[in-house]
Amino acid sequence: MGALLWLLIPVGAGLVAALWSSWALRHRKSGDVAELAGYARFRDAMEREHSASEPAPAGSDSV
């Protein structure tokens, strides 16, 4: 009987782990939609920054 009680510990831990993993993965989105949208916003912001800045004067080379 004692061996069966010791066997219940890993079985219970496995069930708890299975329940936790299914709960943890329920909010995940499939695909890279959010990442691609963030990259597109970053690229647009960088293009706006470079187009809005004025070019440096021709004689201001610092070597």
Rank of each mutant, 00 (worst) to 15 (best):
E54M: 06
R48S: 13
M1E: 08
G31K: 11
S21Q: 15
A45K: 13
M1T: 02
I9A: 02
R48Q: 15
E54V: 14
H27S: 12
G14H: 03
L5T: 11
K29L: 03
E49N: 05
Y39L: 05
S51I: 00
V16L: 13
L7F: 10
G2A: 03
W23T: 08
R43N: 04
A40G: 05
A18T: 06
D44C: 01
A18W: 12
R41S: 13
E49Y: 03
A17P: 00
W23V: 05
Y39H: 05
G59R: 01
H50W: 08
R28K: 14
V33R: 14
S60I: 02
F42K: 13
V16G: 02
E49Q: 07
Y39S: 04
K29H: 08
L25M: 09
W20M: 15
S30L: 06
G14D: 12
S21Y: 13
D44W: 03
R28I: 08
A18D: 07
E47M: 11
A18H: 00
R26S: 12
G31S: 14
A24G: 00
D32Q: 04
G59Q: 09
G31D: 07
R26P: 00
R28T: 09
D61W: 10
G14N: 11
D44A: 10
L7Q: 11
F42I: 07
L8T: 05
A58L: 15
K29D: 09
R48L: 09
A3H: 10
V16C: 09
W23N: 08
E49F: 06
G38Q: 13
S60M: 04
E54D: 14
A40S: 11
W6T: 01
V63H: 08
A24P: 03
G31V: 05
A24Q: 14
A45T: 13
G14L: 13
F42M: 09
S30N: 04
S51R: 01
L25W: 14
E35A: 14
G2F: 06
L25C: 06
L7I: 08
A40W: 03
L15A: 15
G59N: 10
R43G: 04
L19F: 11
W20E: 15
P10H: 01
D32E: 12
A52H: 11
M46L: 08
L15Q: 04
S22H: 11
F42V: 05
L25G: 12
L4N: 04
A58E: 15
P10L: 01
L5P: 00
W23S: 06
G59S: 12
G31A: 09
Y39R: 10
L19Y: 07
S30W: 09
W23R: 12
Y39P: 00
K29E: 08
W20K: 13
A18P: 00
L15N: 02
E47H: 10
D32T: 05
D61G: 07
L15F: 13
M46G: 03
